[in-house]
């Protein structure tokens, strides 16, 4: 059988198709949930780290945030995933998919936090000063003036992070979750398609399609946010 015939076979055999789309489902669910968790966590951590409050609570929080970012960015994702699955959530019956979402969300949060922090700091200090000089308090100034401008600046970096996240979820195959990558591998090996080339290529096309869709969405958002720019 040649490449073309095998492709037809992959997309016409119910078992293969079911496996592929189950895998796709896992990849998408893990990516979306982890992305949401990462964005929320990252925003909170970023807000903590830029706070100028000198209170004891905030200082402790800032310390925790610093340690969190350092550890997460300094260790491999696969290792973090293993630690989460085999150590922290090594509870019988605890769904591994939830563990995976937590692991990826926590990992993503550290990168998002740094992106958002950089984005907020990239907004000219004059914007804050102008807001404060009018009598607005620091919270309103941040929410109404600084963050809207920061978002515009961080969208490309956040997009990058989300793309990296989607592709990185492929390592959940290492903890026996049948995501898209794992499905392709199973079809190629165990289910007697007798070829890795077709399922792997198909999986690659699926990943590409997801990433392309995401990129497209980000472009639209970016364009709308840039309405106030000359460019």
């Amino acid at each position: 059988m040649n490449f073309f015939e095998k492709t037809v076979q992959l997309f016409t055999t119910a078992d293969y198709l079911k496996l592929m789309f189950t895998g796709l489902g896992y990849t998408v669910v893990i990516s979306i949930c982890a992305a949401i968790l990462g964005l929320v966590l990252g925003t909170l951590v970023a807000l903590c780290s830029i706070s100028k409050s000198k209170g004891i609570v905030m200082r402790v929080l800032q310390g925790i945030c610093k340690v969190y970012i350092t550890i997460i960015r300094g260790t491999p994702m696969a290792l973090q995933l293993f630690i989460m699955v085999f150590a922290i959530f090594a509870i019988r019956g605890f769904p591994t998919i939830v563990t995976a979402i937590l692991a990826f969300g926590i990992n993503s949060g550290a990168y998002v936090a740094e992106n958002i922090r950089a984005g907020i700091l990239s907004v000219d200090i004059g914007q804050t000063e102008a807001g404060r000089a009018l009598g607005l308090n620091s919270r309103v100034t941040l929410i109404k003036i600084v963050i809207p401008q920061a978002i515009k600046n961080v969208i490309p970096a956040i997009g990058n992070e989300l793309i990296a996240l989607i592709k990185e979820t492929s390592i959940v195959s290492m903890i026996s979750i049948t995501d898209l990558t794992m499905a392709a591998k199973i079809i190629g090996a165990g289910n007697n398609l007798a070829s890795y080339v077709v399922p792997m290529t198909s999986a690659a096309v699926f990943y590409l399609a997801i990433v392309y869709l995401l990129t497209f969405g980000i472009k639209i958002i970016e364009k709308r946010l840039r309405a106030s720019d000359k460019r």
Binding site: D124, G126, Q127, E129, A130, G131, R132, A133, L134, G135, L136, N137, I145, P148, Q149, K152, S228
Partner: peptide, 21 residues
Amino acid sequence: INLARQDMGMVFQHFNLFNNM
């Protein structure tokens, strides 16, 4: 200070208009 600033207008060298508005 936020209350006091309401009565004091400030004009900056670099304008500092809110770019997003």
